[in-house]
Design a protein around this nucleic acid. Sequence first.
DNA 1: TAGGCCATCTGGTCCT
DNA 2: AGGACCAGATGGCCTA
Length: 235
Amino acid sequence: MNDDLERKNNTSDAHDGIDFSKRFDPLIATSNSYNCDIPTGTFPHDQQSFANSARELESGYNEFNIDVEDNSSSDSVDKNFTSDLNRDNTEYSSEEGQDFEGKIRSSRRGSPHKTIRLNVNARERRRMHDLNDALDDLRSVIPYAHSPSVRKLSKIATLLLAKNYILMQANALEEMRRMIAYMKSTSPSRYEPYSTAYQRIHDIPRLPSVPNQTSETSANYQGTNCELPYTGKKV
DNA sequence: TAGGCCATCTGGTCCT
DNA sequence: AGGACCAGATGGCCTA
């Protein structure tokens, strides 16, 4: 339990010296349950700095390596077990198969069932840690405010932001393809002055779904007014 | 203090 | 049979 508490204290909401009063206001999402505009425009594309900032923010998050192999004798795991006993107000050393809260639990302290249960718990814990590591990796490549003064994205926010980022990139790619096709179709002179080419490019008819990308709208992916479901507040 | 977010435990189900 | 996956329950921490 100590390991778990330490892990919790070092994870999401417990970064020392970080002002989490500032919540990141990214564009969050388009899901079926919350209708939001897909943001357009361009990200600031300094990916490396984004990733570095994310790692800085999340430093210490992946440094917990709970040994799940020797859990049968592990203090932390055993304390977890004890903690769970207390939670349920039921001792596992009581009659096997005792029913409480509609569940039948066969675990007993010191019994083979306990060992099996602990192994299952350890696997599940490891699985969830792997999932969280993957989410951290995802956060590290999503352009959002990785500043230490910005709170780490929640799981749901990470997924929704990633989805929107993919959609936005797809839009950008499509627009670029149109632009290239248009340039090819007009077969410009090899020696066309830059100003002429610039003018021509900016006269390209745009896709209906892609608004003008001015200097104001570009790099403003975070301005979308979207809300998360149950919170009703921006993330 | 309520609500959000999270980690963990647990039992059920599915898959190999 | 054992492991992966999933969802519900629970309790802790943090913020508004």
